[in-house]
Design a protein around this nucleic acid. Structure first.
Lengths: 135, 135
DNA sequence: CTAGAAGCTAGAGTCCGGTCTAGATCAAGA
DNA sequence: TCTTGATCTAGACCGGACTCTAGCTTCTAG
């Protein structure tokens, strides 16, 4: 069940460019094997890892943090607590980010509410126009 | 109550570089005035706008979208609905982002939970080590 | 009067996360 | 055989959002 880079690209949603880039950046746990002709060979596990990986990325984890995790894993048993801590740290960051977004949303909604109120009274331009300070 | 760029930097949390950059990028509604010697003069309203602005930025709104908003406001009355729509669009994006983060968080927690379970049994390395597929 | 802090402009540099190009090789089908 | 398409490498390039530099002017305190 060997997979070519093109197949992995199609199934992971990453471009072949990105896959080669990720490899250069050391984001694969098991350095990607090659066929005798130099072509990369991937396996199902790689796809599983890439799925996790893109989840982490999409939640804002920098490539550097992912690399850090993968480097720990590569060292083999003994550092499980550290690996866990990397994930936990990111978990906390995501939580903080969510809280932050909720707050921003609340602020925006309040501004929009006020804006609409005035809009209804036909005096909207004076609001939410930073060059014309609010009453 | 005129403010220098340095004071604005201190109070807004943006660097003087960033303030000049924002100006070049057209992110101020009222093109920043200058003293006869060429130095920028800011006012309280500018600080208020910058506060909103950094909230929007920190919630992921690109400078281009902020510029779009400010350009509408600069055109004066008549396009309030459009201005509102710019804000609403961002509001929706923030909501989507929050939902996404919640999902990622759930996935991560599940992974971490499984990991910990196995950690407790001393067989952690085989889990969450992408090069050693899970049992 | 002078040192040092703060401003100015234009433009270069940085970091991140990719994306794309050039030029070569290789594999398979008409 | 010839062509087409997938792959390879090294390295250039991109967009976003700043950040910093060079070279100059201007303000302020001692």
């Amino acid at each position: 069940m060997d997979l070519s880079i093109g197949e992995v690209a199609a199934r992971s949603g990453l471009s072949v460019h990105a896959l080669r880039f990720y490899e250069r950046e050391g984001l694969f746990a098991n350095p990607v094997r090659r066929l005798s002709n130099g072509r990369r060979v991937y396996h199902e596990e790689d796809l599983e890892w890439l799925a996790i990986c893109t989840k982490l990325r999409s939640s804002g984890m920098p490539l550097a943090a992912i690399r850090q995790y993968i480097e720990l894993a590569r060292q083999g048993p003994g550092n499980e607590r550290e690996r866990l801590e990397v994930l936990r740290a990111h978990e906390r960051q995501v939580e903080a980010r969510i809280a932050d977004l909720h707050e921003t949303l609340a602020v925006m909604r309040e501004k929009v509410r006020i804006y609409e109120e005035h809009l209804a009274r036909g005096e909207a331009d004076r609001l939410w126009n930073p060059s014309r300070p609010e009453a």
